[in-house]
Amino acid sequence: MEVALADTGGAIGAGQAQTAAIRIDGLVKRYGPFVAIDHLSLEIPRGQFFVIVGPSGCGKTTLLRILAGLDKPSEGRIETIAPAAGRPGNSMVFQGDSIFPWMNVWDNAAYGLRMRGAPKAEIAEVVGHYLDRTGLRRFAKSYPHQLSGGMRQRVSIARAFANDPEILLMDEPFSALDAQNKLLLQEELLRIWEEHRKTVVFITHSVDEAVILGDRIMVMTAQPGRIKNFVDVTLPRPRDVLELQRSPVYAELVHTIWSSLRDEVNRAKRQAEGEG
């Protein structure tokens, strides 16, 4: 199994990667005169863990919101794979606290399934499964204010996975967490993702995180957001985060991405200073 896992990105021929889950063609997003995303075209194959890195303000969150259907493109076309009947097209793990404070852990995790009227038995089984996988079963009756930040983000992940979408969208889900919690959650995410290998679009500003999680990494330019380059991550799966960080390939990848990202981060910084 491990052999096939080294995704070769553009080389469409590796069986499962043949169907595209997302196809973006000439996407532009403007807010008045401000261009957030500038003619972006992209294809993400089904089952790929696709990571987007870029300096802040490069439009990566905007891109994800458009994919989630929460924002409309100004120009261009977006196609996403049609989900099987009864299943949702995508579910989003938001940046920051997004689980409902007025629902306990169980009800939060069950939200997507309830909204699409899934049968009670299915809800109990699926939600139970993901609460087990995220170590939250004991806290099913707890309210968010009784949980730590890391646990709240676990609920958010369980909610998205339990909804069983065709595509998972994750917007810097771990950015607010401390280093230790971040590591634990990255490992958990990898483990859960391995079960079904759904298509994931994951946004981060952390290069390490991108390499740890991703099959393919897209580096974006500073505003206006364009594609700078792609980096394929050929590290085998399943991945062990600690082992991974010792491998020379990992170090090489981090270096490559950093060097292409550094100019953009500097440019974003100059832009921000210019405005201020």
Partner: peptide
């Protein structure tokens, strides 16, 4: 506003 986004994303009627 994030909670309303969650509602929309999870197709709440």
């Amino acid at each position: 506003k994030i909670f309303l986004d969650v509602g929309h994303n999870f197709h709440a009627s």
